[in-house]
Nucleic acid binder design. Structure first.
Lengths: 229, 229
DNA sequence: TGCCAGTTTCAACAATTGTTGAAATTATAG
DNA sequence: CTATAATTTCAACAATTGTTGAAACTGGCA
């Protein structure tokens, strides 16, 4: 028996830890935190129930580990893209579109982006972002510093904008982004196949235009309180 | 003892059904479907566990009933606002902004909009909208017809736009809308109190501008495939 | 009054939950 | 090889889950 077959039948130790992460990622992204049992994760990973506890501790810690694994990769890429964008731009005056691209592009330039794992992770981010109960240490303390950097950059691009307007616009970007990359399939059905959720390139191009225009309109200096009807 | 005290101590029968709905709405919106037990709902409503089963059948049916109760009210209002908007507009050519306002305004012109119930409902909509598992009959068959009407109106407002672009733009509107009205409190924290999630009027005014600009840019006729970097 | 349909509670069910401590296995180093 | 540490499994725990059938209660009608 060669090593390939051997690995299929009895995955090595260090493999098991990541296999638990992968199984948990897939199940959590589909059914949410409470919709998944540790036994379902263990069964899917082909290991014993107690092993998840040995490697990660409590169930909640496993959930956090799933999220952190890819968040660290993604945040590093976003930060690098933002800094590159700021260096290329005219000193002290980047364009809104360039900043938006730096924020969105890493989502689809990850080399392994079409692997199931990243799709599951995006769905998971939409889950936590839209749930009031997941505000805790994990999302807030981990994502907010990165977002602050992007807000700073947007202040440079929109020097006359009020902070309040920038934050509201970021909120809309955040909602559009997480829903779209969650790939729930609702858009496919609504458009009767005209749009495909898994066409990340099309999603990216459309979103850049939509969001850039939105920022530029909302952050015009002339708006005291818009004369709403 | 007067009737007010009496009602507090022993709610009438028909009250109990709606008290179960209210309790379920509050708990589901905070913890999701699987994060809530029928016993927790019953305890919060002050009734026996079996009563929820008597009135609504299975747990999933109770969840659907919670969602449908307010969705019917909201959808009727949106439809009325859309038709009024189309009648007021120049024949065959409404403005994008007027359509967006008709889609969003009912969310805050509901008279009882500041009651806890509607806030919980908005959070619940964000929950189902962002979860891949809730595509079923309920959301799809119930919301899609209304959305189709709005898409039709947007086609009139943007006669040169490709359908594909309109659907993508609607997807972004949908994500921004559901996240914002879910009022997760993340924006409050990120902006250090500068923006308040519960200021629905400010959310509405900003969103109208952002989304209208987004639609108008994405749905320009000239874009074959945008020259993305 | 007595009866009856609509509500509500009681008690219990089989199944499943997260978690743990001890035993068994495997790898690593001496 | 042996012993020591890391990993994995086994078995079981107390608590909780959705659901149900029968009993108790309620108000309105004859």
């Amino acid at each position: 028996m060669n090593t390939a077959i051997k690995r299929q039948q009895a995955p090595s130790r260090e493999d098991r830890r990541t296999r638990i992460l992968d199984a948990a990622e897939a199940l959590f992204s589909r059914h949410g935190y409470d919709g998944v049992t540790l036994r379902a994760i263990a069964r899917s990973a082909g290991v014993d129930v107690a092993l998840a506890n040995y490697h990660f501790g409590r169930k909640r810690a496993l959930f956090d580990a799933v999220l952190l694994r890819r968040a660290e990769v993604m945040n590093a890429r976003r930060l690098a893209d933002l800094e590159a964008c700021l260096e290329e731009a005219a000193p002290g005056r980047p364009s809104v579109e360039a900043i938006i691209r730096a924020y969105l592009r890493p989502l689809l330039t990850i080399p392994e982006v079409h692997e199931e794992g990243w799709k599951n992770y995006y769905a998971l981010v939409a889950y936590v972002n839209n749930s009031p109960q997941w505000g805790g240490i994990l999302m807030t303390q981990f994502f907010n510093p990165l977002i602050d950097r992007f807000i700073d950059a947007l202040r440079l691009a929109l020097p006359d904008a009020r902070d309040e307007d920038i934050y509201w616009a970021y909120q809309f970007l955040s909602g559009a982004l997480t829903l779209t990359f969650a790939q729930t399939g609702r858009l496919d059905e609504l458009s009767r196949g005209l749009c495909r959720s898994d066409d990340l390139q099309a999603a990216y191009e459309h979103m850049v235009g939509f969001v850039t225009a939105g920022f530029e309109r909302v952050c015009r200096a002339d708006s005291g309180t818009p004369a709403g009807q």
